[in-house]
Nucleic acid binder design. Sequence first.
RNA 1: CGCAUCUGAUUUCA
Length: 247
Amino acid sequence: GATFVRLMGMLGKSKRPDLAPVLLQKMVEDKCPPSVELYTSLVSVYTRSNLLDKAFVVYEDMKHQVGCEPDVWTYSILIGACCESCMFDKAQELLAEMEQYGLQPNTVTYNTLINQYGRLGMFSHMEQVFEDMERKSQCPPDIWTWNSILKSYGVKGRTDKMESWFDKLCSSGMEPDVVTFNTLIKAYGRHGLYAKMQAVVAYMHKFLYPVDVVTYNLMIDAYGKAGRVVQMEEVFKRMKLRGVKPN
RNA sequence: CGCAUCUGAUUUCA
């Protein structure tokens, strides 16, 4: 069972929805009973290839499969796919529907919404979702939530908002992680705020946060795109001095 | 160095 789920996941990541029916057939031949996980991985195979119609066919099937009814994970995937296609009304419908079935959206469900609203610069919607998360108890914001918000403001050049949300993150008691810092670095680098970019790295070193290959790659990329080859090479040197292997 | 590992969902267009 777990093997089929894993294989289905591979089909999703490699964008091969054409092979999903073949795998299902094989599963039936092996008399392997289906599971929520398997069905959900199948939904994911289709959403990853933007085949929403097929994903929804599977979703409707699941409703009639005893023991394989859609769960929070299934809904999170479908809601994310709807948002990605800007079908926000459909996403809201699904949210209402899952609650009808007694399923409460969790942190990931909301993170998906935050990420998608943020990606499109729909900041008031994004912040509204964040407020919902804080108000409810079953979906507390996690570091992914914060990082998504920081990233959304960062890529749109709203580094002022990014900074105030970073402060808010720190005072919330949540620990930033390497993705948090890489998100800040990427935003500063993209918008030419090199001093702030360097300040983030200095902060990471000062407070002993691990720096990774992504951290350095982002800085090399920023300097490279700006034609600042001297600084770029300097970063590359420091990277090797720190024992971080270039990839 | 190679192999293995890398969860059915979200930050990862590094």
